[in-house]
């Protein structure tokens, strides 16, 4: 009898571990609001999630990129500038791992917003991308009006960039994972290779979610 009980407890532990290890969905971040609607005479309450608002920027090829261009993509966003002497090199060294992992995957993109558009012209961004070893359309380097970029950064839930006395830009090094519904599904410290490995794993988890499967 004792043996049987022991076995049962073991089995319980095993199945508990199994179900927690088999995580199917990622959390959804940001504010959420319940919205009550009447459909066919019935009152339905729906949750509206925080999403990335519309934007319009120019990429390293001089093409205009808007939130619509990304509406069928899972993408990773970050904020940087090409002449950044501090954390950007290590962020983009880590982001290269994400790029190399998914560059052949049409569903996954990377979007790096420059917070120094005055210096980071389209030509500068193109040159930076080329030297980094980035080709094709899976990693965009975007620039637009500085105010727009700063404002947009808030919707990605990162620290709004600031400029200090030396005109250097202060920003945090987060990578933000956005799903096809423009909802934030994860944030990762882009300077930490371990967190970036987690990001790569999470992109794979996200890709497997049923509502990320819609065809283009």
């Amino acid at each position: 009898m004792k043996k049987l009980l022991g076995g049962a407890i073991l089995l319980l532990f095993y199945s508990a571990c199994n179900s927690s290890g088999n995580k199917q969905t990622l959390p959804i971040y940001g504010e959420r609001n319940p919205v009550t609607k009447t459909i066919n005479g019935q009152t339905v309450t729906d949750t509206v999630y925080h999403t990335i608002p519309p934007f319009k920027f120019i990429n390293q090829y001089g093409d205009s990129i808007t939130n619509k261009s990304l509406q069928n993509d899972i993408y990773v966003a970050d904020f940087f500038f090409t002449s950044c002497p501090s954390i950007c090199p290590v962020m983009h060294r880590n982001m290269l791992n994400v790029y190399n992992q998914f560059k052949g995957d049409n569903d996954v993109k990377i979007v790096s917003y420059s917070i120094d558009p005055k210096h980071d012209s389209v030509n500068v961004l193109k040159d930076y991308a080329t030297k980094l070893g980035v080709t094709g359309n899976s990693w965009y380097f975007l620039q637009g009006k500085k105010e727009d970029t700063y404002k947009l950064s808030e919707s990605y839930l990162v620290t709004k960039p600031q400029e200090d006395a030396k005109q250097m830009f202060i920003h945090d090094g987060y990578f933000i994972l956005v799903d096809k519904q423009q909802r934030i599904r994860g944030t990762y410290n882009g300077t930490d290779p371990k967190e970036v490995d987690q990001l790569i794993a999470d992109i794979k988890t996200l890709k497997a979610e049923p509502n990320q499967q819609n065809a283009k």
């Binding site: 954390i87 090199p89 290590v90 983009h92 060294r93 290269l96 930076y128 080329t130 030297k131 980094l132």
Partner: peptide, 16 residues
């Protein structure tokens, strides 16, 4: 130095 030049002094692509 490490942020730019890397843990193993490997630099970064053709940038650093």
């Amino acid at each position: 130095c490490q942020n730019c030049h890397g843990d193993n002094g490997e630099g970064l692509s053709a940038l650093i």
